[in-house]
Write a protein that binds this DNA or RNA. Structure first.
Lengths: 356, 356
DNA sequence: CCCGTCACCCAAAGCGCTTTGAAAGCACTT
DNA sequence: AAGTGCTTTCAAAGCGCTTTGGGTGACGGG
């Protein structure tokens, strides 16, 4: 059933029916009620393509998901973010169109989506330092919101980010307050902007206590359980091992925990672990009594808010670049405790033998 | 730049330009070359909305992602599947439109998408027993492909599935061949179709050796690491504990491994673990030397193939319900080994008490 | 010389909607 | 009786594309 048929059915013109349904004032309440009722009765839904063609608006948001050709990883954060954004979209009557493309075709994908005219704006995922997508999108002229920030980018842009730096300052400080001095950082790949900021936070906190960072205790890689395990294991074998780990994801932390427990050590007693927790639904460090002490910030909520920001921006494009910085909570779990053997000098002497 | 402008620019009619670009025969090769060249030069991309309006095809596939309102979990398999499907789509010039909706609004979402006319077909995720979406979609009349199957559904439909039953028969047989007799099954939620089939496979294999399944060794829940850990721990505390675990996901298996190692046991020696592995990119049981022995089937590849099937179906709707059953490979990892205490008679006598 | 065939190209209709500009109806004023 | 302002409705143009149903000119056969 289309507009014309509905109009004929009602004995009205398309114009009137259209206006009645879209809430324009030039139609009497009486008529409007009749129209709305009839529309519901016959299950009329306007054809979005036709409407889009007429209005120039697509009522859809584009998400371009770059798939790295080297390590074929799909950002696990992505599913939850999408879920959050999707909620906002569907409430606002927007669709989400996804384009999964290899790294190097991202620019083409954006241009194409714009030219094809099937989106009104974009969300940018996983920004890197000096991310080229931002100037590109600014040039294209469609509104967009970046989930995260991109250090080094000069073009002004709208973003929503977690205060990664502050979160890691707090987490590090928390461990320092517990007496830990040898704190390892298991970070994500440091071309990702969030990882850069987390490292900064970590270093800042150490510096605040006059502690020199030890390169042997800093690692960055794709955030998998295996990585967490292997890195932790190696570090625990160091002559002067860390007493605490700071991980950039729950997956990493799970690996760390395994390394700890495999050694017969107890997490939260012998070794402390703090992780950043995106509250990914399937990892389940959630709840009131989480396993890991964590800097926590819901990626799903970020999705909701970023989407809302974008819709706002689309409705009112000259409202200019806008941003929002979410603070991560520091959630106490069972993975942290006071540093063992506060006399770090004694400690050091014990482990000064080279051998494993 | 639109068709009219391009036509004017070339001194041709819109008709000719359109035909030239879409490969119709009624235009000379000479002219076609000129047109194609000019189109590329000015970066012309047809407006998909207009084209869709004219052709009635949307050049897009709809994915409706139900978000359970109870346990707010986003199926972690979903991201990889999407990535695979996305590859196929973009090669074929299709878009993917996602709709994330609460469980109970799924039907509305499908109807709406159809009425709005912005998709040509659907992919159905995570089918359950007697899944109501299948008759609904059959009634709507748009082509669709189900990722998985739905036991109990009578309506004919197209699907692509992994042979979950066979995979779990093989996995169980493999463990049985190694001498294991007490094999635990840590399954996903058994309203999901795949979980039902896996249990069937497990039970079939046990039955094949005349072994009575022990309800104490069968569990099903949301597939998280914590679940794997807790279930394994409890089972290992049984008077007659399992010597092997069969897990429905790598996340579960990771939990099992932790329970094993925390106890000071060695996975692959004292306790064996086999898991189903969807080859999720971020879990990384991949590679040639995987940690877990696993029944492996790439969910990403499933995405690719399901998408291809759907596109085929759209191009040729009367090609009728079509299906494809993927076989999972059984990949040898380091998590399995012969059952300890080969003398199962001694073993059995221990457990001959009715207990529990 | 005419006509039928091709090969090539075009004008125009139509997809389903929004929106402009105008008309019709009505109640008042003047 | 005509004009005014207001509300309510409508016809028609247009969004950018595809596709139908011709046209036009060249060519060869009758």
């Amino acid at each position: 059933m289309n507009l014309r048929q509905l109009a004929a059915h009602l004995g009205l013109s398309q114009t009137t029916v259209s206006r009645a349904l879209n809430g324009y004032p030039e139609v009497s309440e009486e008529t409007r009620r009749r129209v709305v009722e009839a529309a519901r009765a016959v299950g009329y839904r306007p054809n979005m393509r036709a409407r889009g063609l007429a209005t120039g608006r697509a009522m859809a948001i584009g998400h371009v998901i770059p798939v790295s050709t080297r390590h074929e990883i799909v950002n696990p954060v992505f599913a939850d973010f999408i879920a959050g954004a999707g909620e906002t979209y569907s409430q606002a009557g927007y669709d989400m169109v996804l384009s999964v493309v290899p790294d190097r075709e991202v620019a083409r994908a954006y241009r194409e989506m714009k030219a094809k005219g099937n989106v009104d704006g974009f969300i940018v995922h996983g920004p890197k330092r000096d991310d080229a997508r931002i100037p590109l999108l600014a040039e294209l002229g469609l509104p967009f919101v970046v989930h995260g920030r991109a250090s080094g980018v000069q073009t002004p842009y709208s973003w929503l980010d977690v205060n990664n730096r502050r979160a890691f300052v707090r987490a590090t400080d928390f461990l320092l307050d517990l007496g830990h001095r040898r704190i390892a950082l298991l970070n994500g790949l440091e071309d990702m902007d969030f990882a850069i900021r987390r490292r900064e936070g970590y270093l800042t906190a150490l510096q605040g206590r006059g502690i020199d960072p030890d390169p042997a205790l800093m690692r960055s890689a794709e955030m998998t359980e295996t990585y967490g395990h292997d890195a932790a294991e190696q570090m625990l074998n160091l002559p002067d091992p860390p007493t605490a780990f700071l991980a950039s994801s729950v997956l990493i932390a799970m690996g760390v925990r395994r390394a700890i427990e495999t050694r017969g050590l107890r997490m939260g007693k012998d070794i402390s672990v703090v992780t950043h927790d995106d509250e990914l639904s399937y990892l389940g460090n959630g709840g009131a009594d989480p396993l890991f002490t964590a800097t926590r910030s819901s990626v799903r909520e970020a999705g909701r808010q970023a989407a809302a920001m974008l819709l706002q921006l689309i409705a009112n494009p000259q409202s200019g670049p806008v941003d929002r910085l979410l603070e991560a909570g520091l959630i106490l779990g069972r993975s942290t405790g006071p540093a063992p053997r506060p006399k770090s000098s004694a400690h050091r002497s014990t482990t000064s033998e080279p051998g494993e």
